[in-house]
Simulated assay, not measured.
Amino acid sequence: MIKRNSKLFLAGTILGMAAYQKYQALAENRSLMSRITEKSLSLVDFVPVIKSSQDYQSALKRSKTPYEIPVTAKMVSHFHYFEGQRNVLAYNPPVNSYQGKYIFYIHGGAYWGQPFPQHFDMLKKIADKSGAKVIMPIYPKAPAYHVDDVFSMILDTYNHLLNDDGIDPKKMIFMGDSAGGRLILGFMQYLRDNQVPLPQQAILISPWLDISNSNPDMKVIDPLDPILGLKNLTYLGREYAGDLDVHDPLVSPIYGDSSSLPPITVFTGTHDILNPDARKFYHKALAREWDVTIYNYSKMNHVFPLFPIPEARDAIEKMVDIIGKQ
């Protein structure tokens, strides 16, 4: 009888917890899955956390180690090395859905981390739905490398696509999340200033637009963000910048000129410490009449479109629609 009562108590506790989470999700006007996912994200380090010299040395060793495409990315998501280049990955949508477009994707990870499994899953979904091929450079990582090394690699890859593969830039969509979103915006500013052909448009997911992290509103959101921590993120950004000032547009493009760029769409969530700068960039664009659109998702965390939640599916459908209309 005692054992049976214990089981009933445990079952009741679990049901009660589930009911509570569902009630909280409804009260917050979000999906239950997004709330559960957010609560679990703090258990995983999506960006390196540097708290000691040992942490730094481990990260330094990783940044010097040649990248190997994960088995799951090859076998499940069907990514491959682009033209044999081990620092550029690609994904081809089904032949019958290919629309002649290319997604040039720069992944996030605070400039220190490699792509996550969720990157491959999200990109496969977008490519299959939009009929666009994906090309993703695996740029050199901090702390062994800095912004100049990264820009040089991204530029070489882009020039190769235009000049050697003959890809029309007007059939190319730039996309990036977090640090990759920052790279995309800064890279487009660089291309415009150096008279290099620009892509058709850009989509930025939870972009890190200011590595100084000086926006005071970030401190308010910091306790709500399960992925990024303000102190650690600021350290990672300073290391990536090398000798550059953290306010230099090359590393913090929010301080740069984004006029005469292709249309830019930003996806962001209010439980992301980078959200205040995404909104700041949007309002700056409004004042200067830059072509920028923003989708601001309530209660969503950093890079939420990467996760298996209804809000991510909504964002992905919007991205596919944007790509298809151009």
Rank of each mutant, 00 (worst) to 15 (best):
H119E: 05
G108I: 06
K124L: 02
P115K: 06
A132I: 06
F120L: 13
I126W: 11
A132N: 12
F104H: 06
G108Y: 04
V134F: 10
K133M: 05
W112L: 00
K125E: 15
Y111T: 06
Y139R: 12
P115M: 03
K125H: 11
I138K: 07
I106E: 12
I138W: 03
K129A: 15
F104E: 08
K124E: 09
F116P: 01
G109N: 02
Q114W: 08
M122A: 13
G131D: 01
I103G: 06
H119T: 01
G109M: 11
M136E: 14
Y111A: 10
Y139G: 06
P117K: 14
I103Y: 09
A142M: 02
K124F: 10
Y111M: 12
Y139V: 14
H119L: 02
Y102H: 09
K129L: 15
G113E: 15
A127Q: 07
P115Y: 09
W112E: 00
Y111N: 10
I135W: 10
Y139I: 12
G131M: 04
Q114D: 15
I138F: 06
K141C: 14
I138Y: 09
K129G: 05
P137G: 05
A142W: 03
F120W: 13
I126K: 04
H119S: 01
K101H: 12
K124C: 04
S130H: 01
S130N: 01
I135Q: 08
I138C: 12
M122D: 03
P143L: 00
L123G: 02
M122E: 13
K133P: 00
V134S: 05
F120E: 12
A132F: 10
Y105H: 15
P143E: 00
L123S: 08
Q114M: 13
Q114V: 15
Q114L: 11
K124H: 01
A127F: 04
I138N: 09
A110F: 05
M122P: 08
P143S: 01
K101C: 04
P143M: 00
W112F: 05
K124A: 13
G113K: 13
D128F: 02
Y102K: 11
K129N: 13
F120V: 10
A127G: 12
P137I: 06
Y102N: 09
I103Q: 07
P137T: 07
Y139C: 12
I138E: 08
K125R: 14
G113A: 15
V134C: 08
P143F: 00
P137L: 01
W112A: 01
P115G: 04
G113F: 07
A142G: 11
K141W: 02
F120D: 08
G131P: 01
A127E: 03
K129M: 14
G109V: 08
A132K: 11
K133A: 10
M136P: 05
D128R: 02
A132M: 11
F120H: 15
I103R: 06
I103M: 13
K124G: 03
P137Q: 07
